[in-house]
């Protein structure tokens, strides 16, 4: 349940974030757009991976479809940006439903690996499509207004987080969590597991696609390699799991922290940045397997024994 205090804190945080373009430099605003978009991806992943217990490693395909849907509608049909986004969402959600029906029957690692292939396959299909500019890519109309892209990205993140907060306390979310905890038992209690899983997948696809569409318009150029970037999957999974999968604010906080770390490190040497990213994952899984959210709730009470307990519970 979201109590009053959390709501007020969230509102203040949103207001602060919204005011960043007023005083932040171009670099800060641009970093903000990326960080907000990453947080949205992590939050959308949270619906499937965190609440429903189906870790997808293929959500980047929805990002790519969102980007391409937007780009094709705008460049080939002269549609406005809003219509483009809708086209991107339509492409991504149909893909989620079509792909979801067969692969959501798979559990655990089977599902995870099956999703790994979706992205590569779709990138290949797109790079053979003339209307999508084949492997050359598409150039979108130029609009360099970072502040409005920033506010748009923030609005998307707020809306996405709002939906997750609603799901966390609703019948829908209860059904998803029941599926995560024990799918067979959930069906026995009357949860239509197939419908719920596909619905969550489609919802995640919609948010991811909007983020992709915004990014395409902002960067004014897309090609298969940048739109269907499989490293995005890795980043969204890590950010969500680092923050706390299955919680409302964990993925947002986790991805802000990791985006900041990554930004600082990438300014030095990119290899060292990637290396440290790997180390952060390893250390985080060992010491806080339930994410930051659990750490913040539990650790103040028990202190350093929190970490010992985690290792004792999960180790051998």
């Amino acid at each position: 349940m979201m109590n009053k205090k959390t709501s007020i804190a969230a509102a203040i945080a949103v207001a602060l974030l919204a005011s960043v373009p007023l005083f932040g430099s171009d670099v800060v605003v641009q970093f903000g757009i990326d960080a907000l978009s990453m947080a949205t991806l992590a939050q959308a992943w949270n619906l499937m991976g965190g609440f429903t217990g189906y870790p997808s490693f293929g959500n980047s395909v929805f990002y790519g479809l969102g980007a391409y849907g937007t780009a094709i509608a705008m460049t080939k049909f002269g549609m406005p940006f809003g219509v483009g986004l809708a086209a991107g969402v339509a492409a991504a959600t149909s893909c989620a439903a079509l792909v979801g029906l067969p692969i959501l029957r798979l559990r655990g690692p089977y599902f995870a690996i099956a999703t790994l292939g979706v992205n590569g396959a779709m990138a290949e299909i797109v790079s053979n499509l003339r209307i999508a500019g084949a492997d050359v890519g598409l150039v979108l109309p130029l609009t360099r207004n970072d502040a409005s892209f920033y506010e748009l990205s923030l609005a998307l993140l707020v809306f996405c987080t709002g939906c997750v907060a609603w799901a966390a306390t609703s019948r829908f979310g209860m059904g998803l969590v029941a599926i995560r905890e024990d799918e067979a038992a959930a069906s026995t209690m009357g949860v239509n597991a197939t419908l719920y899983k596909v619905a969550a997948f489609v919802l995640a696809a919609a948010f991811t696609a909007v983020a992709g569409g915004i990014h395409a318009y902002w960067s004014t150029f897309i090609d298969p390699a940048s739109a269907f970037d499989s490293t995005l999957n890795v980043r969204m999974v890590i950010m969500c799991v680092f923050g706390g999968p299955g919680t409302v604010f964990g993925p947002v906080v986790g991805s802000f922290i990791l985006s900041a770390i990554y930004e600082v490190l990438a300014a030095q040497i990119s290899t060292a940045a990637a290396l440290l990213f790997g180390v952060v994952i390893v250390v985080a899984v060992i010491f806080m397997p339930k994410g930051l959210a659990d750490l913040v709730q539990q650790a103040p009470g028990v202190g350093w024994r929190y970490f010992v307990r985690n290792i004792r519970e999960n180790g051998i």
Partner: peptide, 28 residues
């Protein structure tokens, strides 16, 4: 037995009430 391990007893039973016969009670 198949309880939902990470949920409280109340949440476990609430799932049955929320879904269940005729789609269950729709109200949380």
């Amino acid at each position: 037995m198949k309880p939902f391990p990470g949920m409280t007893a109340l949440e476990n039973v609430t799932v049955g009430a929320l879904f269940g016969r005729d789609g269950g009670l729709k109200d949380m």
